[in-house]
Simulated scan of single mutants.
Amino acid sequence: MDPRPEPNEPLHRIGIPLRALLLALVVAFVPVAALAASGGQGTSGGQGTNGGQGNQGSQAKAGKGITVTLSPSSRTVDQGQSATYTMSVASTGGFTGPVTFAAAGLPAGAAAAWSPSSVVLTSGSTVQATVTISTAAGTPAGKSDFTVKGTAGSIESSAQAQLHVLEVKRSFDVSGTVNGLLAPGVTRSVDLLISNPNNKAIAVTNLTVAISQVVRTAAATAANLPCTTADYTLTQYSGTYPLTVVPGDRTLSSLGVAEPKRPQITMLDTSRNQDGCKGATIQLTYTGTGQAN
């Protein structure tokens, strides 16, 4: 007997359920759908990671510039002395052209100078310059962080270093002479004498005068006539500092200090009896500070 179905016989009559047949058709088409999903813009397609516009695109080049470094990181000097640093200026990104220098943050009285004063870079080159930081006798002692900068138009780079300034003191002697006699209501200047025993000039940064004692005459003492330091007043030196004093002896007048700027001593005019001050000797003490110049 021929098992083939009749042409018009329904499929369910030959033992193949219609539902199973439809499921087989769906499974048969899954690989086709998967292939479609992996095409076009997939990982292997036109714009995927390996496709036409993926990682093969060009990267932007770094901009042109300069890099400044400074060595050593710190120097220590005495007041009035100089410190040198080495400044390196490098071309980056193919920069070419001149570079100028500047400094900021230096302590008072200090200044920077470069040798050479500017440099010219070629592509990829590194050029060195020496920067010298000079200090003055009056430059404050202590540590200062300063910055040096290289500039080429709108391009700039900077580096930092430290300058440690040590205070330098020099010994000297101070004495003085009162210019004239004192009387009630009279003021006289004191011409100070500064004796510098050093073999270098010193910078005097402070001078002070004080009345330590009033010595009456024997007659005034016997008569019990009073005269004390309260009968006098002092005005300190009001000239400019520092005063540069070369080795040897120099008075304020020889240094060009005008008389009104010198220390002034005045005998007060009081209502009490001041006869004990007649012929009295006023003993003054002097102090001062100075540094190497």
Score class of each variant (00 low, 15 high):
V127N: 11
T126D: 11
P17S: 14
G93C: 09
A203W: 15
T122W: 11
Q59C: 13
Y232S: 04
L25R: 07
K64F: 07
A102M: 09
S253H: 14
L35G: 06
F146G: 09
V27Y: 02
H12V: 13
V174D: 13
D191Q: 10
I282S: 09
A218Q: 11
A60Y: 09
A90D: 11
Y286D: 03
G48V: 07
T229R: 15
V204G: 14
S82N: 12
N179A: 02
A137D: 09
V120R: 06
T229Q: 00
A136R: 10
N206R: 03
V246W: 14
T96L: 00
T151F: 12
T287E: 07
A218D: 01
A161V: 10
V89D: 00
I66C: 01
P116E: 13
A108Y: 09
T147H: 04
T122D: 12
T130G: 00
G46R: 05
K278F: 12
T235M: 11
V204S: 14
K169M: 02
R262N: 00
P197Y: 06
V32D: 13
S157Y: 07
S158P: 05
T285R: 15
N8E: 03
Q47S: 08
S74K: 11
T244E: 03
T139E: 15
L21W: 00
Q56H: 09
E167K: 00
V77W: 11
T76N: 01
S154N: 03
G45V: 01
T126V: 06
A108E: 14
P260Q: 02
T100K: 01
D249E: 08
V214H: 05
A129H: 10
Q59V: 01
L163I: 02
Q128I: 06
T132P: 10
A113W: 10
V99D: 04
A219T: 15
L192R: 08
P260S: 05
G42L: 01
G65A: 09
N224M: 11
P31N: 13
L225S: 00
A113G: 08
G46I: 12
T147E: 02
C227P: 04
T49R: 11
A37Y: 09
P3A: 07
K169E: 03
N198W: 06
L25P: 12
T67D: 08
Y85I: 07
V246S: 12
G57P: 06
S82V: 04
G142Q: 12
K143P: 05
Y237S: 13
G57Q: 08
T233F: 13
Y85C: 04
M1R: 08
P260F: 05
G40Q: 08
N8V: 06
S38F: 15
G288Q: 07
A258T: 13
